[in-house]
């Protein structure tokens, strides 16, 4: 056996303990699942509704994160301007902010009486809180830092000279970004998008604060689980299992395809 193949005991023991700690709760979930009534419970409209909404909002929010986050990461990695360090710190604030606080902040900014929300309401008649759009916004708020950090790291590690080579071949800024920079950092973008999607899918605090808990409109899986836990714990377990299965399937598929290349 090769020297590097066999981990030493002082790494192996904590590693196993760590793995057990992560897997044990999942095992608990599986052990207590009401397997006999699973089929009928899954068929209930509310479960599929919540699942559909969760997948949709997480995917749309990942799209928004990509659209805004990749350029933001580029600016943080490449531009230099006074206050850059402050901006970089601000970008990571949603990581450390309790999501509920994020939800409150979103309400104060985009709510009906919020900073921007009031103007949106009076000028366009757009009211964001307690809509599906609000779910997407809440998820985007908490998930975007994961994408920005991942892409910024990839951009910093990328060799700028490829972009110079592209310039000597006649490529303008946009062509360089699209045909050289972006493909070179693609693994970082993909990893960031996966993290982002996973974070958005699990989002609870900001969503319930900013978007509320309306079945079919803003009730995502985590919210449904929380609600079910109050009056039907068995249903909560079923919902959790579904969420678990979907996340594991998606993450496993994406990880093999993108992250580990």
């Amino acid at each position: 056996m090769s020297r590097s193949g066999r981990p030493p005991w002082f790494l192996l023991l904590p590693a196993l303990a760590g793995l057990a700690f992560l897997v044990l709760p999942l095992a608990g979930l599986l052990a207590r699942a009401p397997w006999s009534t699973l089929g009928t419970r899954l068929g209930q409209g509310q479960v599929l509704e919540a699942l559909r909404l969760s997948l949709l909002s997480a995917t749309v929010s990942t799209g928004v994160c990509l659209l805004l986050g990749v350029p933001l990461a580029w600016v943080l990695a490449r531009a230099s301007f006074p206050g850059l360090r402050l901006v970089r710190a601000l970008v990571t604030v949603p990581l450390v902010l309790p999501p509920v606080v994020g939800g409150v902040a979103l309400l104060l900014a985009l709510g009906r009486r919020g900073l921007v929300g009031e103007w949106l309401d009076s000028a366009f008649g757009i009211t964001l809180p307690f809509t599906t759009a609000a779910v997407v916004l809440a998820e985007t708020f908490v998930a975007m830092p994961f994408l920005v950090i991942s892409v910024e790291g990839a951009l910093r590690a990328a060799d700028l000279r490829y972009e110079e080579a592209a310039a000597t071949l006649g490529a303008g800024r946009w062509t360089i970004f699209r045909r050289v920079t972006l493909p070179l950092v693609a693994p970082g973008v993909a990893a960031g998008a996966v993290l982002c999607w996973a974070r958005a899918l699990g989002e609870f605090g900001a969503t319930i604060t900013f978007a509320g808990n309306f079945p079919g409109r803003t009730q995502t899986m985590p919210l449904a689980v929380y609600l079910a836990l109050q009056d039907d714990p068995q249903a909560a377990i079923v919902l959790s299992l579904v969420l678990l299965a979907v996340s594991v399937a998606v993450l496993a598929a994406l990880r093999d395809r993108w992250v580990e290349t």
């Binding site: 060799d159 000279r161 490829y162 110079e164 080579a165 592209a166 310039a167 000597t168 071949l169 006649g170 490529a171 303008g172 050289v180 493909p183 070179l184």
Partner: peptide, 15 residues
């Protein structure tokens, strides 16, 4: 990008 100058780099920098 508008100079029409071709350059061969030391370590080639093939994409």
């Amino acid at each position: 990008e508008r100079r029409g100058v071709g350059m061969v780099f030391q370590d080639y920098l093939l994409f």
